[in-house]
């Protein structure tokens, strides 16, 4: 992966972190707010495959962990597993399918939140399973359906930094070739 891609991905993660903490945290339905974090590995996996998803999930999770009160490293672990899983599961699916991004964003975000809460509880943070999961899944899932499109655009811009000079953006996963 070129240094240009690394810089662009870091920029996208930074923008996502700022939007999350300065804007989305204030957009509440009840006591729940949308969560942008999981969309980063999901879109990276859809564009770049499982390895890209895992790497972006790990680093973006780690960046979010720096400002979250939950155990340090937990978001990185979930992001990494999420990115790899999404990349592997969707490898055989036609990436041009219009339903793919919203469906994967919805299912992936909900699954990631569930894994995040359960792992947190296993690590001793019992309060993480004392939330109203239906509310959390509803708000995070529906908001992910909408937010996946701008995030996907940003991630495509970041991940295709080197190949963009040679050709148009590939719609197919590159099976880790960018890395």
């Amino acid at each position: 992966m070129s240094s240009r891609s690394v810089v662009r991905i870091a920029f996208v993660v930074f923008v996502a972190l700022m939007v999350q903490s300065a804007v989305l945290v204030g957009v509440r339905v009840g006591v729940v707010h949308p969560d942008l974090l999981w969309l980063l590995p999901i879109t990276a996996a859809l564009i770049g495959g499982p390895e890209a998803g895992a790497l972006v999930g790990f680093w973006s999770g780690l960046a979010f962990d720096l400002v979250l009160p939950t155990p340090f490293g937990l978001s990185a672990l979930v992001g990494c597993v999420l990115g790899h899983t999404v990349g592997s599961v969707t490898a055989a699916v036609d990436q041009r399918a219009t339903w793919l991004k919203p469906v994967v964003a919805l299912v992936g975000s909900v699954a990631a939140d569930m894994l995040f809460a359960v792992l947190g509880a296993i690590l001793g943070q019992q309060q993480m399973v004392q939330v109203d999961f239906l509310d959390v899944f509803g708000v995070v899932g529906v908001s992910s359906l909408i937010l996946v499109f701008p995030v996907n655009r940003l991630m495509r811009w970041a991940l295709t930094a080197e190949s963009a000079r040679r050709s148009l953006v590939s719609a197919q996963p590159t099976d880790g070739a960018l890395w």
């Binding site: 499982p50 999770g61 340090f72 690590l123 880790g176």
Partner: peptide, 22 residues
């Protein structure tokens, strides 16, 4: 196999960070 190795390394690093934190 490289892909699998990458994910295993990332998971191990994440778990190490969590255990450091706890």
């Amino acid at each position: 196999s490289r892909r699998t190795l990458t994910v295993i390394v990332l998971v191990v690093v994440s778990l190490s960070i969590i255990s450091f934190d706890l």
